[in-house]
Amino acid sequence: MTGDPICPLCDRPIPEGVPQSRHHLVPRLRGGKGRETVLLHQICHNEIHASLSETDLARAYCTIEALRAHPRLAKFIAWVGKRPADFRSKVPGKRRGRR
């Protein structure tokens, strides 16, 4: 056990020095200011926002379980889960647009 925090989306450790960010389970602009946040790898956080609108996040994807069940995020989780915990995307910004 490394003692590093675990990303709740991909279940991989978040080692020191790896880009990370806090995700509001309910977007701030949709009533989530001051509500629960979770610490994620930056790459995982980017994928959530590339996959879902803030409205979708607030209405149907405001839990880790719901996020993990989303088809596109489930595919991403399977892909990123095969990478080392310190994996970083070489592509700047959003990888692709919402579908």
Rank of each mutant, 00 (worst) to 15 (best):
P15A: 05
R59N: 11
H49Y: 09
A78I: 06
E54L: 14
R35H: 08
L57Q: 14
T37N: 03
L52F: 12
Y61W: 11
P5M: 10
E54M: 06
S21V: 00
S53Q: 07
V38G: 05
T2Y: 05
K33Y: 05
I43W: 02
Y61P: 09
I6P: 02
E65A: 15
R12D: 06
P71Y: 06
R83W: 07
Y61A: 00
R83Y: 05
A69E: 12
G31L: 09
H41K: 02
G3N: 13
R98V: 09
C7A: 06
A74M: 02
R28Q: 13
T63Y: 03
C44W: 09
T55W: 03
L40E: 12
V18Y: 02
I43S: 07
K90H: 13
R95F: 05
P8D: 15
E47Q: 14
D11K: 11
I64N: 06
V38I: 13
C7R: 07
I64Q: 08
R88Y: 01
R95Y: 01
E54H: 14
H23N: 07
E36Q: 14
R96W: 03
K90E: 15
L40V: 14
P71S: 00
K90T: 15
T2I: 07
R68H: 04
S51K: 04
A69K: 14
G17N: 10
A74S: 12
A74G: 12
R35N: 07
Q42M: 06
A74C: 03
G32P: 08
R72Q: 09
T37A: 01
P19R: 00
L39A: 08
H23K: 05
E36I: 02
R72C: 01
A60W: 12
L67V: 06
E16D: 15
A85K: 10
K94F: 15
R59W: 01
T55E: 14
I64V: 15
M1V: 11
P84K: 15
N46M: 12
F76C: 01
H70Q: 15
P27C: 04
R98A: 09
G93C: 12
L39H: 08
V18R: 03
D56N: 11
C10M: 05
P19G: 00
C10E: 06
L52H: 08
P84C: 11
R88C: 12
V80W: 06
R59H: 08
I48H: 11
A50C: 10
K33L: 05
E47A: 13
E65I: 07
A66P: 03
N46I: 14
L29Q: 13
G81R: 05
H70R: 00
V80Q: 05
G17A: 09
D4N: 14
G97T: 12
C10S: 07
R59E: 13
A66Y: 04
L57Y: 08
F87Y: 15
E65N: 08
E65C: 03
F76Q: 06
S53C: 07
P71R: 00
P15G: 05
A69H: 06
